[in-house]
Amino acid sequence: MLVNQFLLLAAVLFCIGVYGVIARKNAVLVLMSIELILNAVNLNFIAFALRNGSTDGHTFALYVIAIAAAEVGVGLGLVLLVYRNRKTISLDDLSEMKG
């Protein structure tokens, strides 16, 4: 197995996630794209852990998984709050911070 095959797969996943964050308007779908990005990063951690024969990558990947779970919980709480106040979760309608 090449090192690069895993890193390139992670790069593809990362770019698809970035596309999703840019292109999507629905807040839940944007959160799903962020999950794609986080998984790409985790794949890199594990690939480098095997390449270097080190445990640090595994530890960090586990921490990233925990942080991602917390992020989804708070993110969906925010989305529910926005929905309750606006009756929409379209990110284009949340434009108060536009100058």
């Binding site: 790069a11 593809v12 990362f14 770019c15 698809i16 970035v18 596309y19 999703g20 964050v21 840019i22 292109a23 999507r24 308007k25 629905n26 779908l29 379209s90 990110l91 284009d92």
Partner: peptide
């Protein structure tokens, strides 16, 4: 109504990013 008006902008961004990586 799931996509932005400017969703096509994401395609070149993702492709350039992938090429760089």
């Amino acid at each position: 109504g799931l996509n932005n008006t400017y969703w096509k902008l994401g395609i070149p961004v993702a492709l350039v990013l992938f090429a760089a990586m």
